[in-house]
Design a protein around this nucleic acid. Structure first.
Length: 217
DNA sequence: ACATTAATTGTGT
DNA sequence: ACACAATTAATGT
């Protein structure tokens, strides 16, 4: 089967940590290939997590959301990576309080939670991968915390724009000021004013619903 | 092509 | 943060 072979190749390439062929075959046998278009919502706050994603292509952004509405961008998941929160939830059989959205057109292998214990028991390279995922995502969350505490908002905004541009592989970001404000947990007016500053400084070009970063990716 | 409406962005307090 | 103005895009006729 072509899709299955493509997935096999992608897994080998992107997850070199999975040494054993048998592990890869297990993942392919029980996992489900999922494709998302840009901005498609993969997971709502109230959802139970039924699978752990292994990213093959594109990117997911993961938010933590509180009781009513306020949300924080936690981290991104790129090809070759997985999601610490879904692993954590699967492990504890708890609800996620998390929202996941496709940052670009995205493809991943969804590994059902029932399989996780099994993988842990039999495959040391899986255990290593899980540990690595936790450590990686922990670092990313720390960076968010650092940013929130130490950095000024204009720097955070620039970093945000750079990250988005990089993830989707082009400097043109189609996104309203409101959306950005939500991602950075601030108000739309503030973002509008900062963006105007950035435009005056020649760092971005602005158009309605669209921001272009004037620097190399 | 024109008018109407909705969405986004700008600005003063 | 809120209120409102101004601008631009989308939609219907």
């Amino acid at each position: 089967m072509t899709t299955s072979n493509q997935a096999r190749m992608a897994l080998r390439e992107l997850f070199p940590a999975f040494r054993q062929t048998e592990l890869i075959e297990q993942l392919l046998a029980h996992g489900q290939l999922v494709t998302l278009v840009q901005d498609e919502v993969l997971l709502h706050v109230t959802d139970y997590i039924r699978a752990v994603p292994l990213l093959l292509q594109g990117a997911l952004r993961v938010y933590r959301e509180d009781e009513l509405g306020r949300e924080v961008l936690l981290y991104h998941i790129r090809p070759g990576e997985s999601c610490a929160m879904s692993l954590s939830c699967a492990l504890q059989d708890r609800r996620s309080r998390i929202r996941a959205v496709a940052e670009a057109d995205t493809r991943f292998l969804a590994v059902p939670v029932e399989l996780l214990m099994e993988l842990n028991r039999h495959y040391p390279s899986w255990q290593t991968f899980v540990a690595l995922t936790f450590s990686q995502k922990f670092e990313e969350v720390l960076r968010v915390v650092e940013g929130a505490v130490f950095q000024h908002l204009d720097e955070r905004l620039l970093n945000y724009l750079r990250e988005v541009a990089q993830l989707q592989g082009q400097p043109v970001i189609i996104r309203s000021h409101q959306r950005i404000a939500d991602d950075l947990a601030t108000s739309r007016e503030v973002i509008s004013r900062l963006l105007k500053q950035l435009a005056q400084d020649g760092r971005v070009d602005l158009a309605r619903g669209q921001i272009t970063l004037r620097e190399a990716l």
